[in-house]
Amino acid sequence: MLGGGLRLWHGVADGGGLGAGREEGRAGGRAGGREEGRAEGRAEGRAEGRAEGREGGWAEGREEGWAEGREGGWAGDWKEGWAEQDLAEEDRAEDWAVLSPEERWRARRFMRPAETGHYVHAHAEVRRIMAGLLDCPPRAIRFGREPCPGCGDAAHGPPSIIEPTATLRFNHSRSEAAWLLAVALDGRRVGADIEQIRPLNAFTGLLDGCLTPAERAYVVDTADPVRRRRRFYHCWVRKEAVLKAVGTGLAGGLIRLDVRPYEPGTALVRADGPGAGSFLVHDIPLGRGLAAAVAEESA
């Protein structure tokens, strides 16, 4: 069961980045109403700058703005993509209008218009939800970061609210068109992760580079490759949610953190090292094609 001060929202943008998607608020484990939205198509790109793992020197993700699968001359696609994106910005004017200059700059770095739309919509929705909680206009919110508990650098610490003054904490995640927002109204540390479940390259290497022995045993305890993939993502989103709550992100050490995936629903997890603490990690069921988890600091 979710803690009394924890609320969640999630959604899916449509192919152009519009659409409220599904929004769900929970307080004390109670659902607070839902808005249903369906994506008519999935984006072909990958999320901004996300590495699906950085242990042992491998990186499964793609850098922001890198167009996947383009071999040979892609200049024509690039120019056409920007022409489409200029038109799409007009269609998404209400979303673009609430973003900060930095968010708009980041959005324009994507090569694929669909991915830009997903980023813009997700960040605009986060601003609107936070504005409702903070009683201010969405564009008036100034986001920042707390110092990383590992190195002290605020460039990659957990997200924070600089203006207006607030005691709540939040974390959000996006994977292609899907997004997830977790807010701890009581100010406890919180982390969230959502992932599209898709085939993985070098699967054995990921198991060895990311999972503890107990987690690896859980993943391979089935001969079905589809179940193995889902079990890996189950471990992954729990790990990233906890490490985002800790404040170090993936640098906090994937292979040193055991998230007890064999305990369904909610598990109490201990994170050692910088930002050490105990966290309740909750599985968030969002459908067969998604894996999601939220971690909240244990009282």
Rank of each mutant, 00 (worst) to 15 (best):
R228N: 10
G3H: 07
H172G: 02
W58M: 02
G72M: 12
W78N: 01
A299P: 14
I162T: 12
A184Q: 07
V294S: 03
L8S: 09
E125S: 12
W9N: 07
V259I: 10
H282V: 05
L286A: 05
A202R: 15
E297Y: 11
R109F: 03
A154T: 11
V294I: 05
E24R: 13
G144E: 12
E84M: 11
A51N: 08
E35N: 05
A67P: 00
C151S: 11
E84K: 15
L257K: 10
K79G: 03
G45F: 01
W96H: 02
A75E: 14
L18N: 10
R92P: 02
M130D: 00
V242Y: 07
R189E: 06
A241V: 06
H234W: 06
C148R: 02
I161Y: 12
R50H: 08
R127C: 06
R238C: 03
A184H: 07
D272V: 13
A97L: 09
C210T: 15
A107P: 04
G205R: 15
A177Y: 03
L211V: 01
R127P: 01
R50M: 04
P101K: 15
A51S: 14
F143W: 09
R106E: 07
W9R: 14
P158V: 06
L211F: 10
D272Q: 10
P101N: 11
G5P: 04
H10A: 09
A245I: 07
E163T: 08
A177Q: 15
E48I: 02
F143N: 01
F279K: 00
A292V: 08
W58Q: 02
E263R: 14
W236S: 04
I162S: 10
E263N: 01
D283C: 12
L207G: 04
G252D: 11
G49P: 01
P199A: 14
V294Y: 01
E55Y: 02
H10T: 09
L134D: 03
W179Y: 13
A67H: 04
H172Y: 13
A178Q: 14
A217S: 09
G73A: 13
P113A: 11
G144N: 07
P158S: 14
R7N: 04
